[in-house]
């Protein structure tokens, strides 16, 4: 589609070369095209072309109407009007990468992927990123196109969540199918089996989560003797 448009615009331009530098529309179009897949913000256009706000707005509207340019979302600054020539696809910097759709982080998609990965690793006990990817492909678990890199990113974030553990294959026991030294992932074994993060000693008492511990003193206004978090904690309903 973009190729045909490009030839179309080229055809249109050739017969009237003088018009290129004259109309605001063409000035803007050239500027926008020169920015490639990064696009440009409306205020920057105004600054670079020295055109007034109404002129720019009108020209952009016209160009959009002729399908020569499009408005894109820049995740760095969602409020800004950002334009790009129709033949380009927004760069990773603008979209935020594969995990963003229309400038928003696709949390549902990520969650689905996470759940699938956790099931697959639970089934295999130990698996490499490639192994998980192959299993997804072979069994058509995920309908959308994904890459091994994406699976790897998902697995790494699950490691950060402490849902799975990153280990190097020793080639022994459960690793017998995986070459020694390969990075693989497995469910957290032992007693913390798939339970995620362990609750520490400090985190399990009110002081561990207390936002006001800095103001708390033995005989102060905030004190363990009068603490409402303690009150709640020690209220057993007897």
């Amino acid at each position: 589609m973009s190729r045909s448009q490009e030839t179309l615009s080229l055809k249109r331009k050739r017969p009237e070369p003088n018009a290129l530098a004259l109309t605001p529309e063409n000035v803007l179009l050239n500027l926008i095209k020169s920015k490639g897949d990064m696009g440009i913000w409306k205020a920057d256009m105004k600054r670079e072309t020295n055109l007034s706000e109404p002129v720019v707005t009108k020209a952009l509207k016209a160009l959009q109407g002729r399908n020569l340019i499009k408005e894109v979302v820049n995740i760095q600054n969602k409020g800004r009007k950002h334009y790009m020539a129709a033949e380009f696809e927004p760069s990773k910097e603008l979209t935020g990468g594969a995990w963003y759709t229309e400038g928003n982080l696709d949390k549902d998609f990520i969650d689905i992927l996470k759940k699938s990965c956790s099931k697959i690793i639970g089934k295999f006990k130990v698996a490499t990123a490639q192994g998980v990817y192959d299993f997804c492909k072979d069994n058509k678990i995920i309908s959308v196109d994904i890459t091994t890199q994406q699976i790897l990113e998902i697995l790494r974030s699950m490691v950060l969540d402490n849902e799975i553990v990153e280990v190097k294959s020793t080639g022994l026991g459960e690793f017998h199918k995986i070459p020694v030294g390969t990075v693989c992932y497995r469910t957290a074994s032992g007693m913390g089996l798939g339970q995620g993060p362990k609750v520490g000693a400090m985190a399990s008492i009110p002081c561990g989560a207390c936002p006001r511990i800095n103001q708390c003193t033995p005989d102060g206004i905030i004190s363990p003797k009068t603490c409402k978090y303690y009150q709640k904690w020690l209220d057993f309903g007897i």
Binding site: S223, P224, Y230
Partner: peptide
């Protein structure tokens, strides 16, 4: 902070 929390636990218990 953990020393602080330990102190708090002791104070509360005594209280």
């Amino acid at each position: 902070e953990m020393y602080h929390a330990a102190l708090n636990l002791r104070i509360r218990n005594a209280h």
